[in-house]
Amino acid sequence: MSASPRPEASRSLSRTGIDWGSSLGTAVSLAATVFILLILFVILGNVVIHGLPQLSWRFVSTIPKKDFFDKDSAAVLPMIVGTSIRVLVMTVFVIPIGVTTAVYLTEYARSNSWYTRVIRAAISNLAGVPSIVFGLFGAGFFVHLIGGGIDDIIGATSPKWGKPALLWASLTLAVMTLPVVIVATEESLRAITPGLREASLALGATKLQTILRIVLPNALPGILTGGILAVSRAAGEVAPILFTGAAYYLADLPRSLNDQFMDLGYHTYILASQAPNIEKARPILYGTVFVLLLLTFSLNAVAIFARARIRRQMRSGH
């Protein structure tokens, strides 16, 4: 029997050499991480450096003239208004419906049955369907079918609802965000220990009382975070509103739900793709992008801050 290889007795525990392979691997993976963060900082830094100087009270508070490629008349008030309203209307639709559906799926539906599983799979997969497909759906379904149908019923001679409109854009976004809200809500509902539900039910609470007074209040932080993230994602989405409501130019702010609207993201796209002279439009483009990022990131920051705060609270038991 040959002796199994053993470390020589003389080898000490002190470090004798550098393990080059491991160092290299660690360094490369660290470099990749740094590079990704660098991408983030370069994009943000670039937008802030070039965008911040464009910001003025006039820029955010006036309605631009038709030639919005011109630096002196460029402004983004209607876009801020349009984006805010469409996000707001979307929220009004998607949060109640999404939360209710999630409550049904976690609290009422039998979790092991095949149809619940199919529904759950469909919903979570729908969350990954490209936003342009929702735009296509919105144009065909909301604008032409529903809107056109309403026009037929009320006998409108010119399209009143059967055209792109604020409502249709908001609904399209709501349909798009619905799976995200459902999934996020379900997750936070399921994170609640079954013990709490049992405790409430054992006290003689009904299912609804348990849901309303114990389950939902405790899941609220998670629901809120998920909701805000979904909303901020939707605020920056352009593809679904391309043909459901966004307008190239309007002289007025939208007055009703069947008006079209201008939108920050869509405006960014127009400035980027249709400016007669991209060099001239560059500062305006940066200004618009800056405002758009400010809007989405402030929503994001609220969500991240809220989550961190709530986690801390939960840990300290208050």
């Binding site: 220990t193 013990g195 709490l196 049992e198 405790a199 409430s200 054992a202 405790n218 939960m314």
Partner: peptide, 10 residues
């Protein structure tokens, strides 16, 4: 009912 693991509401 009282449960194995104490489950006070938060």
């Amino acid at each position: 009912m009282v449960f194995q693991r104490s489950n006070p509401f938060p």
